[in-house]
Structures are given as structure tokens and as C-alpha cells.
Design a protein around this nucleic acid. Structure first.
Length: 574
RNA sequence: UCGGGGAUCGUCUAACGGCAGGACGGAGGAUUCUGGUUCCUCUAAUCUAGGUUCGAAUCCUAGUCCCCGAGCCA
């Protein structure tokens, strides 16, 4: 153990693993699994589980399987298994040859069930679901035993066989474990092991018409795969006694151990498959991979990096208490990685024309601009300056507020990496809107600094009007206005109406022409962007804003405004 | 009225009977050709009440509050 390095925290699951290793349990093996049900897309909450399971295996030199928990054919689909595999891979994890499906074990599971019937530990119940539900009792009252509970094993075996053979309709019979109808734990009140479902399964087709329930399939699949630590979320805590019961009664020798941790919650975010599906189905977003979605595919399309998501999962920790992580931590991890890795470029979102009056008509100066101010190894690119340029509309104010060091009449600013210009005049259109600035440049300031060493506080991004490339830019903001959308009467009522703003007519520097879809850059002073994986083409660029840069000026201005007037500003943007 | 789990800065997370620490956020400052980055400083917590102990976030007792559980979902 190194003493001076930042000590990685040992969360409670690692403690358990350490203890098991120390006591020689499982022959020193560590085997985990990530067990998604293929009935939806993965989201950032799943990423926590993926990082935990694969991370643990990697850290201890063990293995982590990918296993689809596909025991319910009516909700599952191959569309989901494909997206899940893509997402896990994208996050940076590899299950190698350990791809499994619970459905691969249907035959084993059936055999186990027969064994339990023979042992007198399971029976076929032939009541309706209403009757069974009524007999189960509630939290305060014990359940009643089914009239079929003591049906001879022979009879159950026969019925179970005919259930499999397809002799019955859905719901006519179920297979139940014979445990304890008076248990305080509802899961132990003779839980259902198998139900009849005449439905095509995405992998086994029509081979089966009975399907095992989660409880009967999950632990057994773990045991078959020789999983040592079966990690799941807190809501399965009450299932653990049942998990252990099945594994014990079937008689596995090195039974896996189920360990529960608290699932991730994020502020201003909804992380329930059902709610996310609702957003998609009701067209409140444009699909599962809408860049505003917390789905892995949405984050990917938004421009998130796998590294930043992994870093986030490392930092949030693993514990058992309910938690709501501030989404700003996710954004912090994102910016941290993007700052290091994104090449810089200049793009103007809302262009304002600037004429540099004393700049020769036909001259073009090509400046070598560093692609990253702190990392020379990222090289340089050429950026042209000519007489007419475009700057950000927001960077000019007819009347400069306090602490303003951008453009305003008679103010001198720097064009990043190019030169110093001073605003001499401005032109308004009939509606009173400023449409053009008249400036002069200091020819001795080529490169961006004046020979006399005078300080110029403001530095602006810019593009040469004649050379700039047109682009569409999509500005994304958080999808929900309320910190916990689930606390709203209806979570949809707190959807941010301005979560997407599409800007046409943006202009970016010519080095970006032909940029392939999905590549990332930082537009200086604005934020991190990526070309949209679906809609961007080399000759028709579409940028998604992944994250804005921290905006200290916005903060200052907000403070000044709220200090002088009573109007609170609502500047947001991530 | 039952069973299971959990309570530490605003948020997330450490501590394993011995100085309550880190990160995010927030506030302030330094540096800066991005009002970015970086750096520095500050901010702020042990659910309550008793007990054990030289010493308690940690152990004991009693409360309080929160989460999960009555699908032929996972």
C-alpha cells in the first residue's frame, strides 16, 4: 500500500471482498456480473453499476460477465440488447467471451424446479392471480396457505410438465416455492417461480411457454456462472432471504453472495426507465439518444466522454444511504476531461459584423493559433484575418456596464491570437438594432499584443467574414427546472421549455470545414461542442453544445443586477 | 399494526474508541491573450435524549425521521 498517493476510498463492498479474500472464500476468486433486463436503454444510473461491477473485477484480477436478465418475453427486445452492449463497450468495458443470457439457463432452471418439487419444496398452484394475491395477506396480516399447497409431488410434477408442454392457458397454473405464508417478509410467502406465458421470446422463440420469475432465475444464473459477489440495488434487499433460500435448497456449493448498494439519483434529472420511456413515447424529447436524456446514448450524443462518466462514478462513491448527487459534479467531471483533451477553435454563435476600417481591402493574414493553450503537443492551425470579421453580438454593448471589458465605443479589445482593435463607431438599422461595428486595428499588435506593452483586458473570439463556414448550433440546457422533478405533481410539468435552442446562421473558423460527425472541440469562451453524430455533415455542420464554460461575467452581472434592481435574472445553462 | 434498510458540511463521501477529512457547490483573492484553466484562502456537518468510557460519529438503551416491500415486473 503506497503511503503518499491519494488513498482510494475502500467502500463497504470492497471491504466485504477484502474479507472474503482474506478468509480464502471462493478459492480467492472475484466474479461479478452486470445483469440488465433488455427492456430499455441504459442510463447514467446503470453506469454506476457497470463501473462498480467491471471495476471491482478489474481491481481484483477477477471477471465480470454481461448477462441479460431476459425472463419476461413480453417486455424485452433485441433492440435493447444491442444498445446495451454498445453502451457498455462505449463506456470502456469488455466482457470478452462472457456474454450470457438467463434464457440460456432455461433448461437448467426447469431441472432445478423439478428437483424442488420432488423435494417437496415447490408445488403447482391452480388458483387465479386474484385468489393468490388475496391469500398473500398484507404487511400486517399473515397469508393463508393455498389449498393446493400439499398437493402430492407426483401431481405437481405432472402439472408442471404439462404447463411446459403448453396444455394450459396463461394464468391457469403457476409453480410456487413452499416456504412460509406467515413470514413477515412478503417475498417468502410461497413466491411464484414460474408462470405460463404464451409469448415469443427474443432468443428462445416459441420453445417455451413457461418462464421463470426474477427471483428464481437471478440467483440461479449467478450460481451457474459461479459469481462470487452479486451486486444489486437496495430495493432487492428484501429478496436476499429468498435468493439464499433457492441457492441453498438447490444445493450449490459455493453460493454467490448478494450485496445491495444505493442507486444513483441526480438533481434536475429523472432516472427511471418508465419515466424516460414516457419522455420518448410522448415526443417530449427526440428519442432515447436525445442529447438532453441521461441515457448513455444521449450523453454520448451530447458529447460526454466515457472517461468523464467513469471519473464521475468513481467520485460519487458506493454506500447504502439514499443519495441525490448534484448534477454539477457530473458536469465538473465532464469539463475536467474536456478541458484537457478538446482542441480549441473559434465560432461565433450570433454574428455581428465588424469592419476594420484601416485594414487593407484585399489583405488576408493567416495566424498560427495553438490548438490548446496548455498543451503545445496538440499543434496549431491557421486562422485567417481580413477586413471584415464577425464577433459575438453579446460582446458589444452600446453602453458599457461597470467591469465591462469587451467591445463598446472607444474600447480596445484583443482578437484572440490576432491583434488589437478599437471600436470607433457603430451602425444601427431602422429598428434600432446594432448591425455593424466600425473599428480600427493597431497594425503593430499582430499576434495579439502591443509593442508598448499596454494591458488589454478583453479578448474576443472572432471569425473572418469571408472565410467563415456556416453552421447550426444546438444549445442544450437541463431538461427539468425543478431539482427533484419527481416531487412535482407531474414531472412533465417541470420540463424546461428552453432546454433546446437551435441557432442557425452561426459561423465557425474555416479549419472546421469537413469536420466529421461526432468530433469534439472547445469554442473559445463559449463551451465544449461536438458535431452531431446523426445530423452533421462535413459540408453542413451541426454542433451540439456539450457544456458551457464557467461564466464568471454572467455571475458578476447577475449580482450587479440583483443588487441595483429587484429583477432577478434567471441565467442558466450547462 | 408487520418485515428489511438507512441517518456526518447545501450535496456526495471518509473515519472502524483517540485532532470530524476530501470532493462538488458557494464566497473571496492571485495568475491569465479564453471573464476558461491553474493556484491560494474561506464557508459549512456527526438526527434527538440518555448511558458506558480518561476519551464516542463510532459501543449500549430509548426515541425521531427517511427509504424499500403486498406484480403471474426486474
Amino acid at each position: 500500500m503506497s503511503e503518499n498517493e491519494k488513498q482510494e476510498s475502500v467502500h463497504f463492498i470492497k471491504e466485504i471482498v477484502n474479507d472474503d479474500l482474506a478468509s480464502g472464500k471462493n478459492d480467492g476468486r472475484v466474479a461479478t456480473r452486470f445483469p440488465p433486463e433488455p427492456n430499455g436503454y441504459l442510463h447514467i444510473g446503470h453506469a454506476k453499476s457497470i463501473c462498480l461491477n467491471f471495476g471491482l473485477a478489474a481491481e481484483y484480477g477477477g471477471t465480470c460477465n454481461l448477462r441479460f436478465d431476459d425472463t419476461n418475453p413480453s417486455t424485452e427486445d433485441v433492440e435493447y440488447v444491442e444498445s446495451i452492449m454498445q453502451d457498455v463497450r462505449w463506456l470502456g468495458f469488455d466482457w470478452e467471451d462472457r456474454l450470457h443470457y438467463a434464457s440460456d439457463y432455461f433448461e437448467d432452471l426447469y431441472r432445478f424446479a423439478v428437483g424442488l418439487i420432488e423435494k417437496g419444496k415447490a408445488y403447482v398452484d391452480s388458483q387465479s392471480d386474484e385468489e393468490i394475491a388475496a391469500q398473500r395477506g398484507d404487511f400486517y396480516h399473515k397469508g393463508k396457505e393455498s389449498p393446493h399447497r400439499d398437493r402430492p409431488a407426483r401431481e405437481s410434477l405432472d402439472l408442471f410438465g404439462r404447463m411446459r408442454a403448453g396444455e394450459f392457458e396463461d394464468g391457469e397454473h403457476v409453480l410456487r416455492a413452499k416456504i412460509d405464508m406467515s413470514s413477515g417478509n412478503m417475498n417468502m410467502r410461497d413466491p411464484i417461480m414460474y408462470r405460463i406465458r404464451h409469448a415469443a421470446h427474443h432468443r428462445t422463440g416459441d420453445e417455451w411457454c413457461i418462464y421463470p420469475m426474477y427471483d428464481f432465475a437471478h440467483g440461479e444464473s449467478d450460481a451457474i456462472e459461479k459469481i462470487t459477489h452479486s451486486i444489486c440495488t437496495l430495493e432487492f434487499e428484501g429478496h436476499r432471504p429468498l435468493y439464499d433460500w433457492y441457492v441453498r435448497e438447490i444445493g450449490f456449493d459455493q453460493p454467490p453472495r448478494q450485496i445491495e448498494f444505493a442507486r444513483l439519483n441526480l438533481t434536475y434529472t429523472v432516472l427511471s426507465k418508465r419515466k424516460l420511456l414516457q419522455l420518448v413515447d410522448e415526443d417530449l424529447v427526440q428519442g432515447w439518444d436525445d442529447p438532453r436524456m441521461p441515457s448513455i446514448s444521449g450523453l454520448r450524443r451530447r458529447g460526454y466522454t466515457p472517461e468523464s462518466i467513469r471519473a464521475f462514478c468513481d467520485r460519487i462513491g458506493v454506500a447504502k444511504r439514499d443519495n441525490v448527487v448534484d448534477v454539477s459534479l457530473l458536469e465538473h467531471c465532464l469539463r475536467e476531461h474536456l478541458n484537457d483533451t478538446s482542441p480549441r477553435a473559434m465560432g461565433v454563435l450570433r454574428p455581428l459584423k465588424v469592419v476594420i476600417e484601416n485594414f487593407p481591402e484585399d489583405e488576408v493574414i493567416w495566424f498560427d493559433c495553438p490548438n490548446h493553450p496548455e498543451d503545445p503537443s496538440m499543434g496549431t492551425r491557421k486562422v485567417p484575418l481580413s477586413r471584415e470579421i464577425l464577433v459575438e453580438r453579446d460582446d458589444f454593448r452600446e453602453e458599457a456596464p461597470k467591469k465591462w471589458f469587451r467591445l463598446s465605443p472607444d474600447r480596445e479589445v484583443r482578437l484572440r491570437y490576432a491583434c488589437l482593435i478599437t471600436c470607433r463607431d457603430f451602425v444601427k438599422d431602422d429598428s434600432g438594432e446594432v448591425v455593424e461595428l466600425r473599428c480600427t486595428w493597431d497594425p503593430d499588435s499582430r499576434g495579439g499584443s502591443a509593442p508598448d506593452g499596454r494591458k488589454v483586458r478583453g479578448t474576443l473570439h472572432w471569425v473572418s467574414a469571408a472565410h467563415a463556414v456556416p453552421a447550426t448550433v444546438r444549445l442544450y440546457d437541463r431538461l427539468f427546472l425543478q431539482e427533484n422533478p419527481m416531487e412535482a405533481e407531474d414531472f412533465k410539468s417541470t420540463i424546461n421549455p428552453d432546454s433546446l435552442e437551435v441557432l442557425e446562421g452561426c459561423r465557425v473558423e474555416p479549419s472546421l470545414a469537413g469536420t466529421e460527425a461526432g468530433s469534439r472541440c472547445q469554442f473559445e469562451r463559449l463551451g465544449y461542442f461536438c458535431t452531431d453524430a446523426k445530423d452533421s455533415r462535413g459540408d453542413a455542420l451541426v454542433f451540439n453544445r456539450t457544456a458551457s464554460l464557467r461564466d464568471t461575467w454572467a455571475k458578476i452581472e447577475k449580482k450587479m443586477r440583483s443588487g441595483s434592481t429587484s429583477a432577478p435574472s434567471s441565467s442558466r445553462g450547462s
